[in-house]
């Protein structure tokens, strides 16, 4: 790695984890239903199962237990952030 490498920063996420050009929002962008965006958004209760401990109370990204997979997590689909606002 070059010593002169610029510190990376993503303006979209306000994060130093990656640069603008490697921002997951480039591919993780959902085409949601119109009704899911306004106040009548979905009230369907989610099926929750944690990919790390199996709990039905939280998603894997928010798991309090020690992570089992050795691959680092950069933030995934299975996060409470992916729920409609009023279910979070």
């Amino acid at each position: 790695k070059s010593k002169t490498r610029k510190k990376q920063y993503c303006r979209t996420c306000d994060s130093f984890q990656h640069g603008d050009e490697n921002c997951p929002t480039i591919w993780r962008s959902y085409l949601t239903k119109r009704s899911a965006n306004n106040d009548n958004e979905s009230c369907v209760l989610p099926v929750i199962c944690c990919y790390n401990c199996g709990s039905s109370l939280h998603y894997g990204d928010e798991c309090p237990e020690q992570r089992s997979s050795r691959v680092p997590n950069l933030g995934s689909a299975f996060s409470g952030n992916n729920l409609p606002k009023k279910l979070r």
Partner: peptide, 18 residues
């Protein structure tokens, strides 16, 4: 089990890539 699909917030056919 996908948070966006189990809450019926999006149509899977529109989001096959992600």
């Amino acid at each position: 089990s996908h948070p966006k699909l189990s809450t019926n917030s999006m149509d899977p056919s529109d989001n096959l890539g992600v």
